[in-house]
Amino acid sequence: MLATIIQRAVMQGTPLLFGSTGEILTEKSGHLNLGIPGIMYVGAISGVAGAFLYEQSVASPDLLNPFLAVLIPLLCALVGATFMGLIYCFLTVSLRANQNVTGLALTTFGIGVGNFFGGSLIKLVDSDVPSIALSKTSNFFKTQLPFASNLGWFGEIFLSYGFLVYVAIIVAIISSYILNKTRMGLHLRAVGESPETADAAGINVTKYKYISTCIGSAIAGLGGLYYVMDYANGVWSNNGFGDRGWLSIALVIFSVWRPSLSILGSILFGFLYVIPTYIPDISVSAKKLFEMLPYVVTIIVLIITSMRNKKENQPPQALGLPYFREER
């Protein structure tokens, strides 16, 4: 039973892990991207659209090429999410628009795009299927290692997931490594802490902001893709993704801007999410209070870190501020 809970927690946590890793990369460049929820929706729907069109293009679902069936949605999700990141960058980096307003508009837009195409895709391509259920494609995404089911609890906890779960963890570890151990990471953190200093040291501030925000958006988009293709078995339902985008931003604060901590944090958040299911006789309404917990925990973390005022645990110093090089 514990193994099942952990397994469910990991699956719940994976979209959050993608989202928070992406948001951390973005915030490290000094940009608070409140568009992440929208970006994750767009990632999801782009993947769905890609898979849907591919499934429609072959005569029978059995003829799907497993490789293409995974690759097409994956690329679509990356492209869609990156495009959202580009909109955000162009407005906030190049045009110095207010980050909060831009982010919120991006979320409105992104959720709109997700729900709109999710609800209208069938009509738009004049298809006769009753609803978007990409179970075939989803099966490819959910493919596990063949021997996982033979390994008992070990297999269940560690090996029972579709490949995107491992991608999420690997991406978080790589991000953590890049941020802390490479020159690129050092430069990126400098941009977010003090763009003037980075600029004076000859670092191309704009380039770093663009690249980190776009890569961050692409990663977050995978969170949406994972949710719909793996977690939701390829079935799109409007607003099904819920508030996971905001939870991802909460997770960023919870893990004090460290992708490696995000891995654990995402499992904890996932755990809080699934735990009511395992409490016997819990009312539907009490579940709602459980869903509040990740946010409450995040607020507590936010308060504690600001009380302790340890410099390493603060948001990047230039977070939210546009950078403008005064003319000399």
Binding site: I87, F109, N115, K123
Partner: peptide, 15 residues
Amino acid sequence: LNSSFSDIITGIIIF
């Protein structure tokens, strides 16, 4: 079409 169409339009105008 889906009613979220309005969110797309609003988003574009605000951008």
